Computed example of a mutant assay.
Amino acid sequence: MKRVLDCRASDFRQMGREDLKGAILAAEGRTVVAETVVVSQPLLPEISNAELAKAFGADLILLNVFDVFQPEVKGIVPFDMFSPSGGPGFDGNPIAEIKRLTGLPVGINLEPVDESADAVESLNALPEGRRATARSLAKAKELGCDFVCLTGNPKTGVTNAQISQAIGTAQQHFGGLIIAGKMHGAGTRGRVVDREAAVAFAEAGADIVLFPAPGTVPGLREQELAEIIAKVKERGALALTAIGTSQEGADEGTVRSIALSAKRAGADIQHIGDAGFAGMATPENIMALSMAIRGRRHTYIRMAASPLR
């Protein structure tokens, strides 16, 4: 089994669910997933945010606010600021195109919304293409997503109970790698990190259980997280820790500190969110996170590796 560190585009193209999970495990806590918002203007309008995230060290790309029934990723068609002709749009499969441009595995967020949740503040009803339903999960498979992340954006009313239910739905209708958990409250009251819920996600069939990284939500301590991660790993799941509370736009020292704390707690994969600038982390922070958990050599290799390899 190759480590994610050693995988190139040709390797990723051949990977299924178990292969990708095994490559992450083999990398021993040295895998970076970068999240980008697909509907925002890219940070550099000549390229997509996904391409920029890869260039600064991401191993996996997670697309946020992606509607599987109206698939779009801003930046696939470059925008020339000095000659904004409004040329032809992109009418192909954006998942396949992002995979071609980056050479990396690509996944999407789908949100298990609980309409009865005691939400702090709810958004307008999400379209089905952004929700974790049987139809949307089947469509994600059809589009070629390598993984789905069953989680909640702010104020969407996603609950742990609905996440557990969505894992079962994904097992039936998706078939790829399943990540499940909360980065923050997602608009519902109550504790973000719940030991029983995390174990339930693993037992329901999640390949990777998602947690907030230490220092990103109030009161979550490294030792507490380490104890919960150990319980999840006993059930055969991996652990992902997320910087999903806009600290992806903080200074590099803060990101490095969070990254090392998460690695000490047992994270197999580290996520950096999309709220740094325009729908992605500050690029230097992606690189800082990568260098903190795996050093310059592997960071530079990922940054430089061509999608043609």
Rank of each mutant, 00 (worst) to 15 (best):
Val113Asp: 02
Val113Glu: 02
Val113Gln: 07
Val113Pro: 02
Val113Cys: 03
Val113Met: 08
Asp114Val: 07
Asp114Pro: 07
Glu115Ser: 10
Ser116Leu: 14
Ser116Val: 14
Ala117His: 03
Ala117Asn: 01
Ala119Val: 14
Ala119Cys: 13
Ala119Asn: 06
Val120Trp: 06
Val120Lys: 09
Val120Arg: 09
Val120Tyr: 07
Val120Leu: 11
Glu121Asp: 07
Glu121Tyr: 13
Glu121Thr: 13
Glu121Gln: 10
Glu121Ser: 13
Ser122Ile: 14
Ser122Leu: 15
Ser122Val: 14
Leu123Glu: 09
Leu123Gln: 05
Leu123Ile: 03
Leu123His: 06
Asn124Gly: 00
Asn124Val: 01
Asn124Trp: 08
Asn124Gln: 03
Ala125Glu: 13
Ala125Gly: 00
Ala125Phe: 05
Leu126Ile: 10
Leu126Asn: 04
Leu126Trp: 10
Pro127Asn: 06
Pro127Arg: 01
Pro127Trp: 01
Pro127Thr: 02
Glu128Asp: 14
Gly129Asn: 03
Gly129Thr: 03
Gly129Leu: 05
Arg130Leu: 11
Arg130Cys: 06
Arg131Tyr: 01
Arg131Met: 08
Ala132His: 02
Ala132Met: 01
Ala132Asp: 00
Thr133Arg: 06
Thr133Ile: 06
Thr133Val: 10
Ala134His: 05
Ala134Met: 05
Ala134Phe: 04
Arg135Phe: 11
Arg135Pro: 12
Ser136Asn: 09
Ser136Gly: 06
Leu137Asp: 08
Leu137Pro: 06
Leu137Cys: 10
Ala138Glu: 14
Ala138Pro: 09
Ala138Asn: 08
Lys139Pro: 04
Lys139Thr: 11
Lys139Met: 15
Lys139Val: 07
Lys139Gly: 06
Ala140Ile: 08
Ala140Thr: 09
Ala140Trp: 04
Lys141Leu: 02
Glu142Leu: 04
Glu142Val: 08
Leu143Gly: 02
Leu143Cys: 02
Leu143Ser: 01
Leu143Phe: 10
Leu143Asp: 03
Gly144Trp: 12
Gly144Ile: 12
Gly144Cys: 10
Cys145Met: 14
Cys145Phe: 15
Asp146Thr: 12
Asp146Met: 10
Asp146Pro: 13
Phe147His: 13
Val148Met: 05
Val148Ala: 08
Val148Gln: 07
Val148Asp: 03
Val148Arg: 02
Val148Lys: 03
Cys149Ser: 15
Cys149Gln: 15
Cys149Glu: 14
Cys149Pro: 12
Leu150Thr: 04
Leu150Gln: 07
Thr151Met: 12
Thr151Gly: 07
Thr151Trp: 02
Gly152Leu: 09
Gly152Thr: 12
Gly152Ser: 10
Asn153Arg: 14
Asn153Ile: 14
Asn153Gly: 15
Asn153Met: 15
Pro154Gly: 03
Pro154Ala: 06
Pro154Trp: 00
Pro154Ser: 07
Pro154Val: 03
Lys155Val: 05
Lys155Asn: 12
Thr156Phe: 11
Thr156Ser: 08
Thr156Ile: 12
Thr156Cys: 12
Thr156Lys: 13
Gly157Ile: 03
Val158Ile: 02
Val158Lys: 01
Val158Asn: 00
Val158Glu: 00
